[in-house]
């Protein structure tokens, strides 16, 4: 299943947190023209390096769909960054 929401929380040294919620599907739709171009460039690169484009596409999709559940939490002193993918 494709990621649906990316959450980022940044705690600044002054203690004030910033929270950002990024809904993935609307962002993908907005950037879809760029995404199509990127897929085309990737397909050409696959042809140049003699890699199966379909296999590469499938693997890319598997990676994207395996992302939900990822969580990265970094704290240093009074600064902290937390990124979660749901």
């Amino acid at each position: 299943m494709m990621p649906q929401l990316v959450t980022a929380r940044v705690k600044r040294p002054d203690g004030r947190p910033i929270r950002i919620w990024v809904p993935v599907l609307p962002v993908v739709l907005v950037f879809s023209p760029v995404l199509v171009l990127a897929v085309l460039v990737a397909a050409v690169a696959c042809l140049v390096y003699r890699v199966s484009a379909m296999r590469a596409l499938g693997t890319g999709w598997r990676i994207v769909s395996a992302l939900p559940g990822t969580r990265v939490d970094v704290e240093q002193g009074r600064t902290a960054v937390l990124v979660t993918i749901r």
Partner: peptide, 10 residues
């Protein structure tokens, strides 16, 4: 200063 990195990867 204490630091902590906590990563969870499926």
């Amino acid at each position: 200063e204490p630091g902590r990195v906590n990563v969870r990867v499926p």
